[in-house]
């Protein structure tokens, strides 16, 4: 049966490539035992790195939810010169390697750049500071909300909005009461994907953050540092926390979508 052979070989590949490494990571972390596990998490350096990762991701997500929805809205509903070009360039962050993203931000805001010098004198340092991390995350996750909301907005039934308007609703009220509820699931999807991505982002952040423990060292940077210095336990524990958070968000998203009857047909 070719069907069985195809299924068997692809599942085997998936097993070796994805399930095996995860299982080994999980098994080896479990071997540490709960007390060692907690101790590793609440190590001041690890704890700070985790908090920094979560907080910068939250700031990024808040900005992206608003700006991403606005961008999708403008791209779908309005006409303006350069719209086609902008629409094509939205995916640029998916094409640019993360290290290069970091390098771009350094080139623009770094201490040796004109803008960086001005900002630095005003006491608004970006590079090697926490705002730099948020900026890097914003760049890297820029397309998520836009690309998630855009197709839904294209299919929104304008009739509903028009009906609301004929019933006397103001444009803002139409948006808030009619359009936004329709878009909400896709905004949620976009932000969840962006958040999950931000938890693991390394290449761009490592270039702009400056790697100062207890100040600009994020979770993935902490994991990397512990691997380099030979503390595999610390690396594993923080990895498991990051991974579990990221997976938890994606699974929750999946469940919410399913309860809503799944926006995508089957």
């Amino acid at each position: 049966m070719p069907a069985l052979a195809l299924r068997g070989s692809t599942l085997a590949y998936l097993g070796v490539m994805v399930v095996l490494p995860l299982a080994v990571l999980a098994a080896q972390s479990a071997e540490l035992g709960p007390s060692a596990f907690w101790k590793a998490i609440f190590d001041p350096f690890a704890w700070h790195a985790l908090k920094l990762t979560i907080s910068t991701a939250l700031v990024m997500v808040a900005i992206n939810a608003v700006m991403g929805t606005a961008t999708a809205w403008v791209l779908v509903r309005y006409e303006f010169p350069g719209k086609e070009v902008m629409n094509a360039l939205i995916d640029l962050p998916f094409a640019v390697p993360t290290v290069v993203t970091g390098l771009m931000l350094v080139a623009l805001y770094g201490p040796s750049s004109a803008l960086g010098t001005v900002l630095g004198r005003a006491g608004l340092g970006v590079i090697y500071q926490q705002p730099g991390i948020v900026l890097a995350l914003l760049f890297v996750t820029y397309p998520f909300v836009i690309r998630s909301v855009q197709p839904v907005l294209l299919e929104v039934d304008r009739g509903e909005e028009e009906a609301a308007a004929t019933l006397g609703a103001s444009p803002w009220m139409v948006f808030r009461r009619v359009t936004l509820p329709t878009l909400f699931p896709s905004i949620l999807t976009g932000t969840a994907l962006a958040f999950s991505r931000a938890l693991g982002e390394f290449g761009s952040v490592v270039m702009v953050a400056g790697n100062r423990p207890l100040e600009t060292k994020t979770g993935p940077m902490y994991v990397f540092g512990e691997i380099e210095s030979g503390n595999r336990h610390g690396a594993m524990v923080v990895s498991v926390v990051l991974l579990a958070t990221s997976l938890g968000i994606l699974i929750a998203l999946n469940l919410i979508q399913r309860r809503r009857g799944g926006g995508h047909g089957e």
Partner: peptide, 15 residues
Amino acid sequence: FAVSPIIAGLMLVIV
């Protein structure tokens, strides 16, 4: 998609 590249590397080292 949900795994940080650093963690992906770590898993490969562990295995």
